[in-house]
Design a protein around this nucleic acid. Structure first.
Lengths: 107, 107
DNA sequence: CACTTCCGTAAGCCATGACTTACTGTAAGT
DNA sequence: ACTTACAGTAAGTCATGGCTTACGGAAGTG
């Protein structure tokens, strides 16, 4: 159940902001921290959490580290999420096909 | 940005368990609390949070209240999530189509 | 070899929130 | 009307975790 840690990661607004910034492409830590209302070490800690959740990955580039979104964790999240999506669609379908057997709600 | 509160809701394991139990169909509060390692008031508080996030809805049934999954919040979450999914697919596609223009990483 | 830049880690502070018990309210049964 | 079952709210406790500053290490530049 890796989607648990992934969801917990994305629950924090700052961490979500970091993750969203990676959507436009790979970036370094300093690049990600620039403009954020928190310190750079904070961003490092967030990236560590995101990496352990399988949401991002990194590769060294000289003295810097380039982070990018990892499809791995994203895929697990999507699979878990689709279960509810399918269930909701089926429930909605049942709701529509059932024309109030007893009693009207909008008389 | 309603997906923010939705993600925060689903970050808690207990709240996630409640939400997952609703996947098999609408249930009452006591029914949801039965078997969970927390008290019934705790489940009530979780349901309140889930409702404010647009993830569940409820309707009275005598002295009970029946909760069910709300497609509303689920849809917003999915739209937000698909942005990353698409971005990840495009990035993966670029990665595959790019045969190392300069320098080999695995010589 | 200094010096700078970039980054991760450690320690500590403090707000957030998940849980409990106790209470109130509402609906159904007798 | 009394009693029982169901559910939401209030108040208070306590752990989790997000942030800061301070430090240490590794890689480029003069």
């Amino acid at each position: 159940m890796a989607y648990g840690s992934a969801l917990q990661c994305l629950s924090d607004p700052t961490r979500r902001e970091v993750f969203e910034r990676l959507r436009s492409g790979p970036k370094s830590v300093g690049e990600l921290a620039r403009g954020l209302p928190v310190s750079r070490p904070a961003v490092s800690q967030h990236l560590k959490a995101l990496k352990e959740a399988g949401l991002v990955n990194d590769e060294p580039d000289g003295a810097r580290r380039i982070y990018h979104i990892d499809p791995q964790g994203l895929g697990e999240l999507r699979r878990w999420f689709d279960q509810f999506w399918d269930a909701a669609l089926q429930a909605l379908k049942r709701e529509v096909e059932k024309p109030e057997p007893k009693g009207r709600k909008t008389p």
